[in-house]
Design a protein around this nucleic acid. Structure first.
Lengths: 284, 284
DNA sequence: AACGGGGTTTCACAATGCGAAACATAGGCC
DNA sequence: GGCCTATGTTTCGCATTGTGAAACCCCGTT
């Protein structure tokens, strides 16, 4: 994690990123991945940049609300990312459409429900509904999980174009738990199985003790644009319950896909703030 | 909206932002506020920067996932802001703590519920629960609304330090609807009243036809760190129902404040992804 | 074929961003 | 208190880095 600027800038002659912007965004990455709060010197050490540079970069980020200084003079993420996220989320209209079905699914299965979409380097969590039970799994909005670990990840991976699949494998399959699939052949077999069965079921591949079932949501062109999944403590996914749960998840995914057809919009209405609206028509 | 770079850079001698970073972030602002998708030339016209500059800035933003290029070669926001937002949200532990009470409040009042916190230039929406009714108001996670308009805005403003209040007024009170409070004296009277009564009630100040009731959530030092509000179509906030609704919102806010005392953590645990957890103990 | 409008690349110039080192401030330790 | 180290902040001369006009490509339209 050293020399983030200089090194990247000259990776190829005609690529030319803007050095200072590249550096600034790398600082944001540090704020997003590592500790919650950083000092200037800490940044400086982590990146190999001089304190003066870091200072002015951070100052600029601060001006725009991306970082903020707490009382103890350390820096943390500001609220601007959240603001932008609101716009990003708004673009995924699956979210609005899926909501009521997700609530229903949580009710029927008693497990937590999560809506995901494929993203740059993994799948990103678009919405969640927490299980009503005392003991439950909690997903995190905006969280990115890797392609190769977990039900949602593998499901989305299964329906990506072949070159991307190969690329992901080529980049390595880091282990997250004892049960993470790290072998290429095993992973490919899993993906084939997912395509055949139309759902993914995993146990503890990304988080120990967490089981999940995932099914694809398709748009009018049969493209997989999202997935619904349920997740919970592994012991609740017993053999007897499993088929029933799978059916529930698949039905939910199918229902959302149908609702998606009903509103062929996609794109962006003028986006008002908090407008009065009606429930999307239920499909039975 | 012209000359965003050059102009800001030399606003004061020792302020020195990093020009290119400043420019890049301004592009993100455009993506967040204006149309959902932009072309290079469009950016160029809107900012007064040369196409070449815009291009390389956008390229750099793209590398880091802040923007992405759609098939039609135009640029939109990428998913990185969402990723960062996940971390930002995680820092507000009120969110976890308030959740169940918010669900309860939505149930009892039949209106949509929203959790907000003071932010740089307004109040930001941290979490929402949609009303179970057919006709309802829908709030947007991450959305920032101005200090002076709406129940949550005015409530938070009322409990801000005096200099900030003056500053907000000095910056002007833009009108959003016919009922927005744009007079300084009227606003100050409203704030005094809110401090006295311990809640804010507004009708159609930010969105036409939307009424809202807001109450403060305080931490162990009695600082107002967040607020719960309910919102719905104005006609449902009749005189007969009003006092009951106010009581509900206040009780919810009080309960959350209490729960907040129970978990004096604040700060950041190692933050696991999707961990098994228990419901926060209910307080009756 | 010529045109207009997009995105992308080139290139020589100098403004811009750089980083070593000096400065300021805060806290810990004896 | 006074020493010390570690932090955040500022200065300043140099040259690296970012700049923008113009040229380039690639479409779709006229």
């Amino acid at each position: 994690m050293r020399n983030i600027g200089r090194a990247q800038a000259k990776r190829s002659s005609a690529w030319h990123l803007v050095q200072s912007v590249d550096r600034a965004l790398s600082l944001l990455d540090l704020l997003g991945n590592g500790n919650a709060s950083w000092g200037i010197s800490e940044f400086s050490r982590a990146t190999g940049l001089s304190k003066a540079v870091v200072f002015r970069l951070v100052r600029t980020l601060e001006r725009h609300g991306y970082v903020m200084q707490s009382e103890d003079r350390r820096y943390t993420l500001g609220t601007k990312p959240l603001e932008l996220a609101s716009v990003v989320l708004h673009r995924f209209d699956v979210r609005q459409i899926a909501r009521s079905t997700m609530l229903d699914l949580a009710e029927r299965t008693g497990e937590s429900v999560v809506l995901t979409a494929p993203s740059r380097d993994g799948v990103i969590c678009l919405d969640t509904v927490d299980s009503p039970q005392q003991i439950r799994v909690s997903f995190r909005l905006g969280r990115v999980t890797p392609w190769h670990a977990g039900a949602a990840g593998k499901l989305h991976m299964a329906f990506q174009p072949e070159p991307l699949i190969q690329q992901v494998i080529a980049r390595g399959l880091p282990r997250h738990t004892a049960r993470t699939v790290t072998s290429k052949s095993r992973l490919l077999r899993d993906l084939a199985r997912i395509r055949r069965d139309g759902y993914a079921f995993t146990v503890g591949e990304f988080d120990d003790g967490v089981a999940a079932i995932s099914a694809a949501i398709v748009d009018s062109r049969k493209e997989v644009i999202a997935a619904v999944s349920i997740g919970g403590p592994a012991q609740r996914f017993s053999d007897e319950r499993l088929q029933g749960l799978v059916k529930e998840v698949q039905q939910a995914a199918g229902k959302i896909s149908l609702l998606l057809l009903g509103s062929p919009s996609t794109g962006g209405p003028p986006m008002s703030e908090a407008r009065v609206l009606q429930n999307p028509r239920e499909v039975r």
